[in-house]
Simulated assay, not measured.
Amino acid sequence: MGSFKGHALPGSLFLLVGVWHIWSAVVRYVANPKTFRVRVWNPVPGFDGRLKYLELYLIAIGAFIDMCIELLYSTHLKFFVNGVLNPSHMNDFEHSGMLLMFFIFGLVALLSEKTRLVPLPEGVLCFIAATAFCAEYLLFYFHSTTHKGLEGYYHLLLVLLIGLCIMSTLTGALLPTSFPVDLCSGIAITLQGLWFYQTAFTLYGPMMPEGCQIKESMVSCHSKDSEVRGELLANFQLFSLVLGVLVAVVGSYAFAASRYRHSELGSLHDVQDGLD
């Protein structure tokens, strides 16, 4: 059984990173399409470079804090019972492992960018990020906490969004000049963050579907029909989020093009019109 805060905190991190990734990809592309390159992280401009690595610090510090909450606070430091891992907190250990992977990605990326210890190319950083998403995917797919019924359906949709993050990140390493791939990666991360929030509000907040409730630390529905209605509601919620994000992406592209448009962007559109 999860909690509202347990979904809202990682949702906030994914949402912030995803929205920033979308905006940065759009601005870099409209500013100069010919020099566009896929980036697994995006520096923050201005402020004399003081906030350049803000995204990486957000990932590393955010994952570390969340990991400490899962591993130290949630377990109350009771790691072992009778010589084995505490079975009552297996889900906390699993969450910690997932968060550790994102912390490692943020730390390695910082070391790669700020030092000469591990000067890694962007493609390798994409693979490391994809590994972190793979760990998250395996966690939710083979979770020791058995998600059944409506709760299981919401987590199944989450697993699908994580899979999209894996594919788009890996493809970014293979197609390093593709704007659609980089944009898809930002969209997938954003949707994952939004779905964490949607799950928090629906299963552990005020948006619980009619006929369902939290009973004995589990989401249970009074009848099969109530559960089906809840699943249909989940489908509608995901569709609404996808539609909203796509509209926001188109709006951000139009806004960025009006402010940062490079002459090459217009010529590319003219060539495409000629081909059509």
Score class of each variant (00 low, 15 high):
83 G>R: 12
45 P>H: 00
12 S>Y: 09
272 Q>W: 05
166 I>Q: 05
189 I>P: 01
212 C>H: 08
143 H>P: 08
119 P>K: 12
157 L>V: 15
182 D>W: 01
95 H>Q: 14
41 W>E: 04
186 G>I: 12
91 N>Y: 13
59 I>M: 04
147 H>C: 01
253 Y>R: 06
151 E>Q: 11
6 G>L: 13
5 K>F: 13
7 H>E: 14
207 M>H: 08
147 H>D: 03
19 V>T: 15
75 T>K: 08
229 R>M: 14
219 V>G: 06
247 V>M: 04
88 S>M: 15
29 Y>P: 05
217 S>C: 04
157 L>I: 15
136 E>G: 02
88 S>G: 14
45 P>E: 04
273 D>F: 06
271 V>E: 00
154 Y>T: 10
46 G>K: 04
185 S>T: 07
125 L>T: 01
63 A>G: 07
131 T>E: 11
143 H>A: 13
185 S>A: 06
131 T>M: 14
161 L>N: 04
71 L>P: 00
157 L>N: 10
126 C>R: 07
273 D>N: 03
100 L>A: 15
209 P>N: 00
60 A>Y: 01
192 Q>H: 10
33 P>N: 03
269 H>T: 07
260 Y>G: 05
187 I>H: 02
110 L>Q: 10
130 A>S: 01
219 V>C: 06
184 C>E: 00
79 F>T: 04
201 F>K: 08
1 M>S: 05
83 G>W: 14
201 F>M: 12
66 D>I: 15
40 V>H: 00
92 D>Y: 12
230 G>Y: 13
226 S>H: 11
198 Q>A: 15
205 G>S: 03
123 G>F: 13
226 S>V: 09
55 E>D: 07
132 A>E: 12
150 L>H: 07
5 K>E: 14
75 T>S: 03
98 M>Y: 14
148 K>M: 11
9 L>G: 00
263 S>F: 05
168 S>V: 04
10 P>E: 05
99 L>W: 06
15 L>P: 03
66 D>N: 12
95 H>G: 12
87 P>A: 01
77 L>C: 13
53 Y>L: 00
223 S>G: 08
137 Y>D: 09
248 A>W: 10
6 G>I: 13
